[in-house]
Amino acid sequence: MARRYDSRTTIFSPEGRLYQIEYAMEAISHAGTVLGVLAKDGVVLAAEKKVTGKLLDLSAAKDGGYGGSGEKIYLLNSNVIGGVAGLTADANSLVNYARTAAQRHLLMYNEDIPVELLAQRMCDMKQGYTQFGGLRPFGVSLLYAGYDPHYHFQLYHSDPSGNYSGWKATCIGANNGTAQSLLKQEYKDDIEVKDAIGLVLRTMSKTMDSTTLGSEKLEFAVITLDPTTKEPKAKIYKPAEIDALLQKEGLMKKEEDAEMATA
């Protein structure tokens, strides 16, 4: 019965559902996890990479730019970091849109775009793809971690339907249910960034598919406020920095083979 209403996003099913959106969310539930936690002095984002392997050329990411492999976590503006889960191609298109939307706001108002406004711009566009044009929706969910002077640190989540909401801690992608319940137990309202980092990494290690927790599988980012300039500081960690962080938290899991080799 449902199959007759699958072909277009622009029509409802008899039960009042938009199947294309639901199918999009199904696609996202197979994608790498992205986890976000809001602290009182910053926001922390972590993500599990699915595109890995020895033959992957990551030389640009190692030394260049602001870090990250460019698969899950992106710098959207100097005050907002985005984490994506879903179809990577769709995600690239959305990230590009987000970046131009942020610059358009800067051009018009000479200020950094407020985080919620950026989420709204994205969602206004995504909703259009569920109502007009007969085009399929974006198969991407995003987490927006950012700062603005009006509401300070914020974390938002948006999905293919074009809906968004603000969160203290949330998770998208595979195993998001597990992660969400873990966060619900451990999250405290007045948590600080340094503790949030530990919380995020511990939650990731419990929900990630892979056995090892290392920079090949993990992307990590933090947004804080520079104490002297009072400007938001977005930091996407380079692979070496992620390994150092994991060492510090005591979460560095060694490969079984390596242990046997030294024994």
Partner: peptide, 11 residues
Amino acid sequence: FRVNMYTIKEE
């Protein structure tokens, strides 16, 4: 605007 976009994309 244009240099910001360049910097963010080119890293």
